[in-house]
Amino acid sequence: MARPTRPWWRPGPAAGRAAPALWLLTAAWIAGGVALWAGLSAKPWLVARRPVLLLEAFLGTGATVPQVVSFKQAVEGQPWCCEARYVDADEARREAGQDDRIRPLLDAYGANPFLRSFRVKLCLPSMESWHEAADWMKNQPGIVSVRAPSATAPKVLEHELLLLALIRGAAWGLGGFAALTALFALGSLAGNLRGELRVYAELGASGPRRLLRAVWALAAPSALIAAAVATSLELVCVLGRLGGVWTAGPLGALPDVPHTAGAALLGVALGLPALVGLFAAGVRRP
């Protein structure tokens, strides 16, 4: 005859009665997973959608070759610099001459009025510090002026902040709803467990043993559901990208679910039942 399973190891209280609470818990963890996804990846997603910002540092006519080389090395060593391209005066003139309105003026002028310059592409996360970058370049030897996107950058950042606040607000709301729903579902499961814990207490089971049973019966299904939700969200992202489902269109820039979101969801899915189990097993006198 097979050895009976340990009483704390078997499935939770009255599986039939527990089904609605488990479905509710599933909905709660899906909402929680989406909230964590949105909350944790909103900032990198918005940063990735920033327009490219170029700062142009103009070299004086007297700037020497060693100064030019030294500036290139120095600017490329800055954390906010993603790319620095040298543009000589002829190339600058050629570019300006592509505009039909300017070309006759240039031809009439004769000599090349353009300065040599460096076009520095700012790394996207460094947009907030474009002003500091411009000031730094202005102070370098050989640099006479810096043209910075003083009109576009603040506007982009302002919109980004607004969007970030909206996304994070929605994520907090959804997360709060998920936590309340999960608490309700876990409370319902704990209610089903009350009779069983009374039996344990009346048979003389120790507090830790009752706690183990309560936490197991609540945390095991909760953690299992949360792990399935976290895995599914990550799979949806990876498979969607691999299959080309959302490489184009507005979903193209959708970020992957960060691993921290899955870990956080699992932590909440273990912690909340443990807390409810603690109350179910010990706080009320059996």
């Binding site: 009976p4 009779g195 009374r198 039996v199």
Partner: peptide, 8 residues
Amino acid sequence: DEPVLNLT
């Protein structure tokens, strides 16, 4: 009136 548990 002891609750019946899901055990053998």
